[in-house]
């Protein structure tokens, strides 16, 4: 008895994934955007979602923190577990979920506020008032994204004065400030120049010891460079998922190989 119980617990901790997607299908009205997806994301790893436009990868990443809730006619079937909890359960507080599962968007979208206020925003809406705590967290987050040295003298200046790459790093800092466990990135570098892109990739690499990353990208080199696992989507189906090394050198499905080589999509 005791053994089986212990055994059961061990199994549970071992299989404790950051995200577990079970038989997930999503619909926009009658259109099925994702078809019976099963996918597991381990903690403290980087998972890249790749595939041609319209394949459903953006839909999937937005399902993970319920960003599609406000879209009329959007519907989800199946289960999405984050830290073992079904996030589409009725009891789930969506705002709390999004504090645990942060998101960085395609185009840098800082608030029209000062640099400091941008990073402090997430803490302030939680009702945190302690100034020293907020300041500490803002500094830490800006250091995490290696932006601190560039902005430390201009914290009161408007965030719109920063360059695109700096703005995107600011948006990452803003997300990290509320200490999420998972960070979703929807093509985070598609609007940036190569140098800014390299900086963000470096960041993800540095930070993956503390956070779980899921990244949608159109850039194959990027997926190969920064991710541990890669999932290839096509027409709403998950075609193949595996270690990035294996997917890029020895894919199991022809279509994956064609896509990675740039022969279609």
């Amino acid at each position: 008895m005791t053994e089986t119980k212990q055994h059961g617990e061990t199994v549970q901790t071992e299989s404790r994934s950051a995200i577990e997607i079970r038989n997930l299908s999503t619909y926009y009205g009658d259109f099925r955007a994702l078809d019976d997806i099963n996918l597991t994301v381990d903690p403290m790893t980087v998972t890249a979602l790749i595939g041609p436009s319209g394949c459903g990868k953006s839909t999937l990443i937005r399902v993970l923190n319920r960003m599609n809730d406000y879209i009329d006619g959007f519907r989800v079937e199946g289960q999405v577990l984050v830290d073992g909890q079904d996030i589409y359960d009725k009891k789930v507080n969506v705002e709390q979920l999004r504090k645990r599962v942060g998101m960085v968007f395609q185009k840098p979208n800082p608030f029209p506020k000062s640099i400091f206020e941008n990073v402090a925003y997430g803490l302030k809406i939680q009702g945190i008032k302690e100034k020293s705590f907020i300041e500490e967290r803002v500094v830490k987050s800006l250091q995490q994204v290696v932006l601190w040295d560039e902005v430390k003298d201009n914290l009161k200046k408007n965030a719109f004065g920063l360059s695109g790459g700096q703005q995107q790093r600011l948006c990452i800092a803003r997300t990290l400030a509320v200490e999420p466990s998972i960070v979703l990135m929807d093509e985070p570098t598609s609007a940036l120049d190569p140098i800014s892109t390299a900086k963000i990739e470096e960041l993800v690499f540095e930070l993956k010891s503390q956070y779980t990353f899921v990244i949608v990208t159109h850039n194959m080199q990027q997926a190969a460079r920064i991710s541990d696992k890669t999932a290839f989507f096509y027409m709403g189906n998950l075609i193949e998922v595996g270690d990035t090394q294996q997917i890029f050198t020895n894919p199991g499905v022809k279509r994956t190989e064609y896509y990675i080589r740039g022969q279609f999509g």
Partner: peptide, 27 residues
């Protein structure tokens, strides 16, 4: 006000009320 700003606010865990009064209205 661009939708991306509201998305940013929602993505941070803002309620609709917080999004409206702290982000959209100031913008």
């Amino acid at each position: 006000v661009p939708y991306s700003l509201r998305e940013a606010a929602y993505g941070m865990g803002s309620t609709r009320f917080q999004t409206a009064f702290r982000v959209t209205l100031p913008a």
